[in-house]
């Protein structure tokens, strides 16, 4: 199945999806050294997002979160791609400075954790391949 969205940052990635209905605050909510969600009570608390296609509705929290994504990328702990329902400036700027493919305006209810995805940030599309 192919889903059409909006291009936020270019590049392609093929990886497993990890999906949440909760917003994500990268500043304070994610450990940039381990790639693990650490926000208490978050649906993905304790899970690693490294190398996955991270699918969530939208970003939240401090603008410093853009720098957290950048640090994860430098640590090789970043997600392979990001898919949002509605992008916010923190995630958009974070993906641009870290060069992480990113697409928004996707109906994320169609995606399940564990499915393999191809994210095409240059076209703004997502393909679910199993």
């Amino acid at each position: 199945m192919k889903l059409n969205g909006r291009k936020i940052y270019k590049g392609t990635a093929k990886a497993e999806a990890i999906v949440t209905k909760d917003g994500i605050s990268f500043y304070g909510g994610v450990d940039p050294d381990t790639g693990t969600i650490v926000e208490v009570g978050h649906e993905l608390e304790g899970q690693s997002i490294t190398g996955k296609v991270l699918v969530f509705p939208t970003g939240k929290g401090s603008t410093v979160g853009s720098y957290t994504l950048y640090r994860m990328k430098k640590n090789n702990m970043a997600p392979a791609a990001i898919v949002n329902k509605q992008i916010d400036t923190i995630i958009a700027v974070g993906c641009i400075i870290s060069e992480i493919p990113c697409v928004d305006k996707i109906d994320i209810d169609n995606i399940k954790t564990g499915q393999k995805l191809i994210v095409n940030g240059s076209e703004g599309t997502i393909e679910i391949i199993d």
Binding site: P32, V64, Y67, Y70, R71, K74, I97
Partner: peptide, 10 residues
Amino acid sequence: ANLGEAGLEF
């Protein structure tokens, strides 16, 4: 304190 090593690297 807000920037951290990540911000500084950027």
